[in-house]
């Protein structure tokens, strides 16, 4: 009996384990982004949005939806992936991963796959929540999903590195807080300044969902 060249069952075990952890923490995993999004709409959508003009023919409230999705996608991806691999390191259960017939690629695939799935679910839940507040029209659903998947995977891979690098939970928080949270804000700022002078010239925001 010789072991297979690819331990698909091992990858699946990690994926299932991580998704199970997500279900167990469903309340914090889903409620927090939903509440945050709702607050964003109350603050930006209602308070500021009513004074804003349309951007490239899109109402301000709808215009910020992709931005909110991406913001959550970035932070959730990094948080989920870094936490996912840091937990076994912290509790010591990583011994089992290391002693299992799993390659580094398979381990990453299991953890990053689960983390990317989670953050995509969160992004889609935000989209659904936003739909309750503003009119969201998705022009290219397939492109949108592909884009979400690519961004989620990229940031989850980065999160995995953070989880391996971090020596404690404090360091685990540093990257999302200092680098990731500010960067979409600055990106949003630059997008807006590019949009403002000539609204018609650049109507597409970061994902092609609200154009």
């Amino acid at each position: 009996m010789s072991a297979a060249a690819f331990n698909a069952r091992g990858v699946w075990a990690i994926y299932k384990f991580e998704m199970h952890r997500f279900r167990r923490t469903l309340w914090t995993g889903l409620a927090v982004p939903v509440i945050t999004t709702s607050l964003y709409f109350v603050v930006f959508g209602s308070a500021i949005g009513s004074r804003m003009t349309e951007i490239g023919g899109v109402p301000y409230g709808s215009f910020i939806v992709p931005g909110l999705m991406m913001l959550s996608l970035f932070t959730e991806s990094i948080f989920n992936a870094s936490f996912g691999i840091h937990m076994p390191r912290f509790t010591g259960t990583i011994y089992e991963l290391l002693s299992a017939p799993l390659s580094a690629f398979e381990t990453v695939l299991g953890y990053v796959g689960a983390a990317a799935t989670k953050s995509m679910i969160v992004a889609l839940v935000i989209l659904a929540t936003a739909n309750l507040f503003v009119d969201v029209h998705i022009e290219h659903p397939v492109a949108m999903l592909a884009y979400l998947l690519l961004v989620a995977t990229t940031f989850c891979l980065f999160g995995f590195i953070v989880g391996i690098w971090a020596k404690g939970f404090e360091q685990l928080q540093v990257i999302p807080l200092l680098i990731v949270t500010p960067s979409p804000s600055s990106a949003a700022h630059s997008t807006r300044s590019r949009c403002s002078p000539n609204p018609g010239a650049r109507s597409r925001s970061s994902i092609p969902s609200s154009t």
């Binding site: 091992g10 199970h20 509790t91």
Partner: peptide
């Protein structure tokens, strides 16, 4: 391998954690 320290996933049920190990080993 049974390590010296009791490293366990605190919130996992016994059945799930043992099945998980079997899965990890393919």
């Amino acid at each position: 391998l049974v390590p010296q320290e009791l490293h366990t996933d605190q919130f996992e049920p016994v059945w799930a954690t043992v099945s998980f190990s079997r899965g990890l080993f393919g």
